[in-house]
Computed example of a mutant assay.
Amino acid sequence: MDSPTPARARIGIIGAGPGGLTCARILQRHGIAVTVYDRDPEVHSRNQGGSLDLHEDDGQLALREAGLLEEFFALARVEGQEMRQLDPAGRLLDHHLPDEGETARPEIDRGQLRELLVRSLTAGTVQWGRTLESVRGPANGPRTLTFTDGTAVEADLVIGADGAFSRVRTAVSPATPRYTGVSFLEAWFDDMEHAHPELSHLVGRGSTHIADGERGLFAQRNSGGHMRVYILQRVPVDWIAANGLHSEDTEGIRAHLLNEYAGWSPQTLRMITDNDGAYVDRPLFALPVPHTWEHSPSVALLGDAAHLMPPLGVGVNLAMLDACELALALARSATIDDAVHRYEKSMLPRSAEMAELLEGGAEHLLLAPDPDGMSRFQQAAQT
């Protein structure tokens, strides 16, 4: 079939994360109809994860195009740009304090960003509780989206914004994410100022990184007095079970971690011992570098679905920039096929360049600071 015009096309976005919602918002601002499908039962159905720093040259640029930059800054925490580097004894090695008025990388909770974007959309744009099972149909469209509830819809363009293990990606690429060899174990802390004043003082108002070459900790303040700590280890993907533990065995995991981090100071070990609730295992995966696929006029990928990389501060920003460029390409092109070509012409080289830069970057999270005091993590995060 001939590629339809964007104004008349049936466009379906899979995934109501920052990338998918940003794309939908910009499309609607240009008068283009779109439906977003997400597996969550509703917008608040689960914890959305930690804090995000939105950069002025990509994440903020996308929000400006979405007409939401002012609302973003009303929610953002500019003080969250503070970054500290400590050694395992808790000594301060490096400290970045944002200048007054600095807005290059303010922080916002992922859940707050999602709510902001959902509120900006026409009512009913997001269909909740729709888990995608498969994408079928010819490359030139239309595609049939089948959901696990037994329903199906047709789309002239399917936009895969469905993350690391994207089902949309399988329609155009056989690539699967590979385990990097580094795992995060997430720990949550509540009411920092009253329940954890020592840690509040140690971490400050932004983030703090500690590493000794083999293991690390990354603490990140969130809004509402909360904090997340990511315990960083080079371990097998099944390390919890391999040590005779299970995910609900908080005390057993804690005892194992204290043995692994033996020699770190009691002050820094509070990030392992004083958390509120269970740990959450988050092994790090990445797509092969470079990740490319044969062009399809009926499928486009953005964010982690297109270029899953180690979490070094670029993921959400690239996803939102992808979303912005794809939406604008659709608004400015005569056909869906032309728009996807235009989008991929800029997105694929950009993502390949960044993926090559960050390849193996999960290891940076474990490396001790260089002689100048700045960690490899901070160097990579500032690219």
Results as ranks from 00 to 15, higher is better:
350 R>N: 12
171 A>L: 13
264 W>C: 02
55 H>I: 02
240 I>D: 00
155 A>V: 07
279 Y>S: 01
58 D>K: 07
109 D>W: 00
332 R>Q: 15
366 L>C: 07
297 P>A: 14
139 A>E: 14
28 Q>H: 09
8 R>T: 14
47 N>L: 13
189 F>S: 04
47 N>Y: 15
117 L>Q: 10
146 T>Q: 12
306 A>I: 07
206 G>C: 10
358 L>Q: 03
376 R>H: 14
286 A>D: 08
231 I>H: 00
292 T>V: 11
60 Q>Y: 08
80 G>V: 03
99 D>P: 09
107 E>A: 11
137 G>S: 14
62 A>L: 10
263 G>R: 11
75 L>Y: 09
184 F>Q: 01
382 Q>A: 12
52 L>D: 02
50 G>K: 01
280 V>D: 02
61 L>R: 04
79 E>L: 10
383 T>V: 12
225 G>K: 09
198 E>V: 13
273 T>Y: 00
132 L>T: 05
108 I>F: 01
144 T>Q: 07
148 T>K: 09
257 L>D: 01
172 V>H: 02
279 Y>R: 03
274 D>S: 04
161 A>E: 03
232 L>C: 09
124 G>A: 15
111 G>K: 05
143 R>T: 04
184 F>L: 04
298 S>Q: 05
237 V>H: 01
224 G>E: 13
204 G>D: 06
301 L>T: 05
19 G>Y: 02
344 E>R: 11
72 F>Q: 07
291 H>F: 02
337 D>P: 03
82 E>K: 03
264 W>D: 04
20 G>E: 05
362 A>I: 04
266 P>R: 10
197 P>C: 13
129 G>F: 10
91 R>G: 14
320 M>Q: 15
199 L>N: 03
